[in-house]
Simulated scan of single mutants.
Amino acid sequence: MPKPGIHPKWYPDAKVICNGEQIMTVGSTQPEIHVDVWSGNHPFYTGTQKIIDTEGRIERFRRKYGMGAGGGKASKQQKPQSEQ
């Protein structure tokens, strides 16, 4: 049993509003919740998301850490075994 007088007021039918339009109702401690993004206008969920890879993130990573053909710190010439 919750203690009386310490909990905020509960609004079982709080309105979620995006761009001045009511999207849905949820339970909340605020009567109205204003949001900028929701699944109905987010590019990932609407299918309009574009992945832009201008610098080639994977190639840059491989170059930086010497993986693959790009070279890098790990691909520098090492001393032969007899000179060590």
Rank of each mutant, 00 (worst) to 15 (best):
K9D: 13
K9V: 12
W10Q: 10
W10K: 12
Y11G: 04
P12V: 06
P12H: 05
P12T: 05
D13W: 07
A14C: 03
A14M: 02
K15A: 15
V16P: 00
V16T: 00
V16K: 00
I17A: 00
I17S: 01
I17V: 08
N19K: 11
N19S: 08
N19F: 04
G20W: 04
E21P: 01
Q22R: 12
Q22W: 08
Q22D: 11
I23M: 15
M24P: 01
M24E: 10
M24T: 09
M24Q: 09
T25L: 09
T25A: 11
V26C: 07
V26K: 04
S28W: 02
T29Q: 13
T29S: 14
Q30V: 15
Q30A: 15
Q30L: 15
P31F: 05
E32G: 06
E32R: 09
E32C: 05
E32Y: 11
I33P: 02
I33G: 02
I33D: 00
I33S: 04
V35Y: 02
D36M: 08
D36P: 01
D36N: 08
V37N: 09
V37W: 13
V37A: 08
V37M: 11
S39I: 14
S39E: 13
S39N: 10
S39G: 07
G40Q: 04
G40E: 03
G40H: 04
G40M: 01
N41C: 06
H42G: 03
H42I: 01
H42A: 08
H42T: 00
P43C: 07
P43G: 04
Y45R: 09
T46I: 02
T46D: 00
T46E: 00
G47T: 06
G47Q: 05
G47E: 07
G47H: 11
T48I: 03
Q49A: 15
K50I: 13
K50M: 08
K50Y: 08
I51G: 12
I51S: 15
I51R: 15
I52S: 07
I52C: 06
I52E: 10
I52W: 10
D53N: 07
E55F: 13
E55N: 13
E55K: 15
G56W: 02
G56F: 01
R57E: 12
I58R: 13
I58E: 13
E59T: 13
E59H: 12
F61Y: 14
F61T: 13
R63E: 11
K64S: 13
Y65T: 02
G66I: 04
M67N: 06
M67K: 06
G68N: 05
A69T: 06
A69F: 09
G70W: 09
G71N: 00
G71L: 06
G71Q: 03
